[in-house]
């Protein structure tokens, strides 16, 4: 955090008791680092800033501000319904993934049984194999379960996440055995220990995984597009896709930008508010 504060705004301009040449070298280094960080931040941030500029200022005249682009884009698709679907699918999926991840991760971290390493490997395998490699098989299965064109069908192939399982496993493995033994002496059963001792230690892991899962599923497009047919089951990116296609015409950038803004704004706001916690959770979790 200290590094971040330094880089993103604090100026090392206070009078210093250090010898002059040392202080100036430090100032020089800090400035260089600041400049590099600003440069990288601008490169990464530019597309988003451009989207926001096109959305709220394009076509509004000099220094004007307008909601016209957003309003026009909102007309193209039933975005209200799509938002609701996206929220249900993204957070519903997250809930199920966290549940399975915690339980399976706990078993893998704390119990020994035959073929444990093979089972762990299967979860790792699931991280590596993209859904598109097994899409037709998944589609057939959903078809035979009559789950095509439902939100459940969109979610089902993702319900057990290898990343979630491995993250929880790693978090649980770092809990000292002594804590568990102390809890047992205090009269807790296995479930009590799981809930009172292990789960609280896994909150950073859960948060970090939540970020990965939410960003992935918020923008996942092809799979929902393929298994759903009606507005009742389609996510918000489908609405964006309705105005982002211009293989047979020129592009209307303001409309495309406004559609993009509709999709990204909620996530962008959420993540801006939670940046610190997310960074901390990431640093603590993805070390498996």
């Amino acid at each position: 955090m200290a590094v971040n504060g330094m880089a993103l705004g604090m100026r090392p301009g206070k009078p210093s008791t250090l010898p002059h040449h040392v202080a100036s070298r430090r100032t020089w280094r800090a400035r260089l680092r600041q400049a590099v960080l600003w440069f990288v931040a601008c490169v990464w941030g530019f597309p988003t800033l451009w989207v926001l500029y096109e959305t709220f200022f394009a076509g509004a005249g000099r220094f004007g501000f307008t909601f016209a682009n957003l309003a026009q884009a909102w007309q193209v698709a039933p975005f209200g319904r799509y938002y609701l679907n996206t929220l249900v699918m993204v957070f519903g999926l997250l809930a199920v993934q966290l549940l399975f991840g915690a339980v399976v991760g706990f078993v893998l971290a704390r119990y020994d049984f035959p073929l444990k390493s093979v089972i762990t490997l299967i979860f790792l395998f699931q991280v590596v194999v993209p859904i598109y490699a097994v899409m037709i098989q998944d589609y057939r299965m959903l078809s035979s379960l009559h789950l095509l064109n439902t939100m459940a069908g969109v979610m089902l192939p993702y319900t057990v996440s290898g990343i979630a399982v491995l993250s929880f496993r790693q978090a649980f493995r770092s809990v000292p055995r002594e804590l568990e033994e102390a809890a047992r002496l205090d009269g807790y059963g296995t479930f009590g220990i799981f809930r009172r001792v292990y789960l609280p230690q896994a909150i950073p892991a859960a948060l970090a995984f939540a970020v990965v899962s939410v960003t992935y599923h918020w923008t996942d497009f092809l799979w929902p597009m393929i298994v759903t047919n009606t507005d009742n089951a389609r996510p918000v990116v489908v609405g964006l896709a309705m105005m982002a296609q211009a293989s047979e015409s020129g592009m209307q950038w303001n409309l495309l930008a406004a559609g993009t803004a509709i999709v990204i704004l909620p996530v962008l706001i959420l993540f801006t508010l939670a940046t610190r916690r997310i960074l901390a959770a990431f640093a603590a979790t993805f070390n498996w």
Binding site: V88, A95, M155
Partner: peptide, 12 residues
Amino acid sequence: SGLAAVMAMAPA
């Protein structure tokens, strides 16, 4: 969200 997910399971 789990509740919402269960609701989503109901076929269209």
